[in-house]
């Protein structure tokens, strides 16, 4: 018996895209992400109800509270993606997947990229909340837009950290711990104000500085992505990405750490 078995061969990019979609869908439906999403959603709801009844509500305070809820969602996403990246170890499936043509580095890169899905969901949600808030209270626009984008950047950064953690630490314990540490870690008010600017959650006070802060977050994301794939794949692209990451981090740190106190305060 003979059957036609021709299957359209895939290019690496097609495989990447399919994997990314698959992992993205899994992430969006993972219980951890949904719990994370529920926190800012609830926080936003409380704000809506309060803002509708209380004309004295201000975005400066409530906006920050809501933002913190989104940061928590980013941390939950990190734990979710870390668990996803560890499932071969957890389920003892490494051996059978090693016998498949797609390498571990492609799968890890797809995992990092898949955090674009939760990042988009959270950015859209925060955008919606802010848009609604704008009809009720006064909002300083350019910086607020950057802050909304910052949530997306934070999800990507934590996603990359979650995958890099899975690849190098190979256990499911460390990343949640790092997440908790991140959440409570806060630069002391005693130290130089410019140090606040490199705290991932901080939003520097001017649009230009906030923009540099985004560059800084994207640089870190790229660095962790390189770490996530470099264990098994060391091609030229990885080296170029590593150089790009170092450049972005170096340049943004130089600007952020030298900014005048008045513009870099959170």
């Amino acid at each position: 018996m003979t059957v036609d078995t021709t299957i359209t061969p895939a290019t690496p990019n097609q495989t990447m895209a399919q994997l990314m979609q698959f992992e993205g869908r899994k992430l969006l439906t993972s219980p951890l992400f949904l719990i994370g999403l529920a926190l800012p959603a609830l926080g936003s709801l409380v704000f809506f109800l309060q803002a509708l009844n209380d004309p004295s509500a201000t975005w400066v305070v409530d906006g920050w509270t809501i933002f913190v809820g989104f940061v928590l969602a980013a941390i939950f996403t990190m734990v979710a993606v870390n668990r996803a990246a560890l499932r071969d170890d957890r389920e003892h499936a490494r051996e059978q997947h090693d016998a498949l043509p797609v390498g571990a580095e492609t799968r890890m890169l797809a995992m990092v990229s898949a955090t674009l899905w939760p990042a988009t969901v959270l950015v859209v949600l925060l955008g919606g909340v802010t848009g609604f808030a704008a009809t009720q209270v006064e909002i300083v626009w350019p910086i607020t837009v950057l802050r909304i984008l910052q949530i997306g950047a934070l999800v990507l950064l934590y996603g990359a950290l979650g995958v890099a953690g899975a690849v190098w630490l190979r256990n499911a314990f460390m990343i949640p711990m790092i997440g908790i540490a991140f959440y409570f870690m806060h630069p002391s008010d005693e130290i130089l104000a410019s140090w606040h600017a490199i705290w991932p959650f901080a939003t520097p006070g001017t649009p230009v500085m906030a923009g540099w802060h985004l560059v800084y977050l994207f640089g870190l994301t790229l660095a962790f992505t390189v770490a996530a794939v470099a264990r098994t794949g060391r091609g030229r692209a990885v080296v170029i990405a590593a150089i790009a990451a170092m450049t972005m981090i170096g340049a943004s740190l130089t600007v952020l750490l030298n900014c005048p106190v008045s513009t870099c305060l959170v």
């Binding site: 299957i7 359209t8 061969p9 895939a10 290019t11 097609q14 495989t15 399919q18 994997l19 698959f22 499932r87 071969d88 389920e91 003892h92 499936a93 490494r94 051996e95 059978q96 997947h97 016998a99 498949l100 043509p101 797609v102 799968r107």
Partner: peptide, 28 residues
């Protein structure tokens, strides 16, 4: 390859799991 002790993603559905392996086999 069917290993002696195959590993499964317990939280995947049967279809999802085979679909995932299909992606890794580059059936795009």
């Amino acid at each position: 390859y069917m290993p002696q002790e195959p590993g499964f993603y317990r939280n995947f559905t049967v279809f999802e799991f085979v679909d995932y392996v299909g992606i890794l086999k580059q059936i795009t």
